[in-house]
Write a protein that binds this DNA or RNA. Structure first.
Lengths: 157, 157
DNA sequence: ATAAACCTTAGAGCCTACTCCAAGGTCAAG
DNA sequence: CTTGACCTTGGAGTAGGCTCTAAGGTTTAT
């Protein structure tokens, strides 16, 4: 039996977070004291850990809600259903990774094209790349940068 | 000279988005018609393209605001300042990628551990992994899954 | 002249996951 | 019996980027 602050400390979350989870139907304390304090059991703690593990692999709270309700009614669901959720999330994560890798590549080439020196940004190749209506930017400026050409890929949009 | 809808179509954004950018100080039309319609010039269009290119490499609107004000006052900024912003963003993007790769790995091992079959999820290894208080899950169940052991890494939190 | 397509504004709503606040009640120690 | 740490509630605020609505004015084509 834990009070809200105890369970929060135990699982390294804030008490506010537990109230938030309760408000959103993810985790309710099994009972209350006479004075209204929340009382959590070990089963509640286990449920919280389920939530935190699901969060740690990237599920949103509403997806976790779904997973929890499946977990409580396993016999009416198939492995395929659960695996489907995991695979869908996997695909979403991979799509996001792809987008970020795109950002990374573009940022890296912007960074590489810039001398990074202490002098005026009047010919900064990063600003030029962002300004230019063509996607191709010549970088050949006056304070010590090496010559280079960088491409800002429009398809990353 | 463009009306809001024309510029929006030209740059494949919504008119609402342009009004939103205006409200947030990113892009204001150079003038208005007598009846109050927004009128955008080519320079405004160029500024919008700057914004969209910066978005395409991962900058937030408030960062883009900063980039725009640097761009308008280049001589008072150094390349180092601009490159610093790019490198900071790059680091943030890389951190996010690392987190998502973590998610990906965990999700992949959950997926691999699950038979994905049409039968009851009562022994579903994914649910077991999320339930289990240990981080290690034996997967050895009754409907056709191959034996395996999957690890749900707590450090990915 | 009128209908369609466009424009204006202020302001609300959405999504995610908290986080914080105020005003007050409860509990254990000294 | 008071202090301090804990708990309660409802509600607002944050970030980020739109998106939509209502109620009305303007332009353009027929």
């Amino acid at each position: 039996m834990y009070r809200i602050g105890e369970l929060a400390d135990l699982c390294e979350v804030k008490a506010d977070t537990l109230r938030f989870y309760e408000k959103h139907g993810l985790l309710s304390p099994s009972s209350r004291t006479d004075s209204g304090y929340r009382v959590y059991t070990d089963a509640d703690a286990a449920r919280l850990r389920f939530i935190l593990r699901a969060k740690a692999v990237g599920f949103t709270l509403s997806e976790i809600s779904e997973l929890l309700s499946i977990d409580l009614d396993k016999s009416n669901w198939a492995c395929a259903d659960v695996k489907g959720m995991v695979d869908l999330k996997l695909a979403q994560v991979q799509a996001k990774i792809a987008e970020l890798l795109h950002f990374q590549t573009s940022l890296q080439s912007l960074s590489d094209a810039c001398c990074g020196g202490p002098r005026s940004a009047e010919h900064c190749s990063i600003l030029e790349a962002l300004e230019s209506s063509t996607e191709r930017v010549r970088v050949e400026h006056d304070h010590g940068a090496t010559d280079c050409t960088t491409t800002l890929d429009k398809s990353g949009n």
